[in-house]
């Protein structure tokens, strides 16, 4: 564990807390893509199949359980909570996310570290996580307005990705055998998807104005 990875994990956790806070405090999920949240739930369940086979640390197991539980809870609220589900921007959240699932799985069948069920699901989860934010970004683009908590949620998610890149550079320089090419290349792609959002986030922060994305 290095400082960059810890910072990445903490900003990831913070992003989920911000999202839960928004849903809990405002009883609303407006501006949040249910499709992105469903993709994250699939990502965590597929990636953490090793929860039962490899023990790494109490921290690792605890965080995995938190990520699986929180992502399922968010999807449950958006689908079934009587008040929250009413605020869901159904007509704006039309990205065909099943394509992303299919394409990621196909890629995992071709590119993986080992041809085992666990490794293929691991690679699938890495590819899917890289593109899972797309329905959310499309929804924001369509609605134009971004409320503060939603903006912060995406900002922290992007920060988590940026810290993970620093973590990989650090590990590459300090660990003799660190070569996780699948994770690193997908991670860079994933972070690049946030670049546009970050640009507008910083502009609004600098001007002290409300975050607005161009149509």
């Amino acid at each position: 564990m290095n400082i960059f990875r810890l910072a990445g994990d903490m900003t990831h956790l913070l992003s989920i807390l911000v999202l839960l806070l928004k849903i809990y405090a405002t009883k609303s999920c407006s501006g949040i893509s249910r499709k992105t949240q469903e993709l994250y739930a699939i990502v965590f369940v597929a990636r953490y199949l090793d929860l039962f086979t490899d023990f790494i640390s109490v921290y690792n197991t605890f965080m995995k359980v938190v990520f699986i539980a929180s992502s399922l809870a968010i999807v449950w609220c958006m689908r079934f909570h009587p008040m929250v589900r009413r605020s869901y921007d159904r007509e704006l959240d039309t990205f065909r996310h099943y394509f992303l699932v299919g394409a990621s799985f196909a890629l995992a069948l071709i590119l993986h570290e080992k041809f085992t069920v666990q490794e293929i699901f691991w690679a699938f989860s890495i590819y899917l996580e890289a593109v899972a934010i797309l329905p959310q970004l499309v929804l924001l683009q369509r609605s134009g307005n971004v409320d503060n908590l939603t903006g912060q949620y995406i900002f922290f998610l992007g920060a988590y990705r940026a810290f993970y890149i620093l973590n990989w550079i650090y590990r590459y320089l300090t660990e003799p055998h660190f070569t996780r090419w699948i994770a690193c290349v997908s991670g860079v792609v994933q972070t690049a998807l946030y670049a546009d959002f970050f640009y507008y986030y910083f502009i609004s922060w600098k001007n002290n104005s409300k975050l607005k994305l161009p149509a």
Partner: peptide, 10 residues
Amino acid sequence: CYQEPPKDEL
């Protein structure tokens, strides 16, 4: 031979 360590990142 070198054995791949378990995946320790989240």
